[in-house]
Design a protein around this nucleic acid. Sequence first.
DNA 1: AAATAATTTGGAACTATTACAAATTTATAC
DNA 2: GTATAAATTTGTAATAGTTCCAAATTATTT
Lengths: 143, 143
Amino acid sequence: MNRETVIGRLKEYGLGITQPRIEILSYLMENHVHPTVDVIYESLLENNPGLSRTTVYNTVQLLTKCGALRTLCIDESHVNIDENTMPHAHLLCRECGRIIDLPLKGISVEKASHPFTMDGNMIEEVHQYYRGLCQECRNKQNK
Amino acid sequence: MNRETVIGRLKEYGLGITQPRIEILSYLMENHVHPTVDVIYESLLENNPGLSRTTVYNTVQLLTKCGALRTLCIDESHVNIDENTMPHAHLLCRECGRIIDLPLKGISVEKASHPFTMDGNMIEEVHQYYRGLCQECRNKQNK
DNA sequence: AAATAATTTGGAACTATTACAAATTTATAC
DNA sequence: GTATAAATTTGTAATAGTTCCAAATTATTT
Ligand SMILES: [Mn+2]
Ligand SMILES: [Mn+2]
Ligand SMILES: [Zn+2]
Ligand SMILES: [Zn+2]
């Protein structure tokens, strides 16, 4: 991912420009795979010896807080990071473990993008996820 | 909750009848509050000295596996237990921390109750949750 | 009641995440 | 560009939810 693009993104959110932040955001913008913090850390470690796991945690938290990322709560053992902040649904495949993007159901993307009221409650975040078997794994099993 | 009813429920699922299981399931059938394992444990401890936290974990896992309970993944720091196995949505209020039941959106309860296919994927569990402010907390804030 | 099987217990282990103080890097002022 | 101040990173320790496991207990079968 273009270094200038990533720096621009950090500036958009009024964040300081640092090497670890560039690396982490860069990774997320290139790899759309809902990685865990540890996956990000291990992946970056090769080219960034000395990177701290804590920095990845801090940075992910920072980027989430300012709305540049979303954290997914699907697998109870850990959080997954999503760089796509447009509202959408997810499928966690019990076979391959992947988290696959799916369209939102029953609510428009526009509506889900901003707070709205529902039965007197103020809804600020919409999350939809499924568990099951992804198409690929289904095909493999039926072979 | 009637002891016989609870024992009946355990038998339905082909599970052994034991004191801890009766206590735990009983608690869940009376208190519809999406408790954490720790809340269940602490609540039961008063009248059940010697109860082990591990037993609560084991029992919740067992009951979930056989479909008598659902575990919710909304708050990333812990799991919440839901005794209501009918598919429905949830709101986690950022103010009071409660998890409130809401109707499912965009998919019927009947359809969500059994596996179905969607874009070639096999969907086995449907989860919908929101984060925001519950009605009560909104009213308090506007006072 | 004895034997067997299932369950519970409690303490240790595991693991994702957070806290924190010292070291380093980045931004600002000159 | 250098000095200074501010922000960030690092590494280690602490925290907390959950799982593991072997010994003890309880439930079931004979
Ligand atoms: Mn996604
Ligand atoms: Mn519920
Ligand atoms: Zn799969
Ligand atoms: Zn509330």
